[in-house]
């Protein structure tokens, strides 16, 4: 298992509450802006989408690419982040 980023660990460490979307691993300022403009302003909204897609890696990454032009790494990070969070708190 490759090591995870600090951002990832921070996010997975605690409940997400009202965290902004940019707190998700893989989502920086630019992607965050794009997501917000499509209505995904909070991390839990993205989590909602993640769950709607039944935690399917392929579909979620596809969706993220589609919505905010994330690259493969960014979308994989984001997926992993939400996935690990769910394992912890869901």
């Amino acid at each position: 298992m490759s090591s995870t980023s600090q951002k990832h660990r921070n996010f997975v460490a605690e409940p997400m509450d009202e965290k902004p979307v940019t707190d998700l691993a893989g989502i920086g300022e630019v992607l965050g802006k794009r997501l917000i403009s499509s209505g995904f302003d909070k991390a839990y909204v993205v989590l909602g989408q993640f769950l709607l897609l039944k935690k399917n890696r392929e579909l979620f990454q596809e969706w993220l690419k589609d919505t905010c032009q994330a690259n493969s790494k960014q979308s994989a990070d984001c997926y992993q982040c939400l996935h690990d969070w769910c394992e912890e708190f869901l």
């Binding site: 989408q49 769950l51 709607l52 897609l53 039944k54 399917n56 392929e58 579909l59 596809e62 969706w63 589609d66």
Partner: peptide, 17 residues
């Protein structure tokens, strides 16, 4: 394929799939 809820935001992804 296991399909989740098809909503406005997920439809396109499922279509592509």
């Amino acid at each position: 394929f296991p399909v989740g809820p098809i909503t406005k935001t997920t439809k396109r992804v499922y279509l592509r799939k």
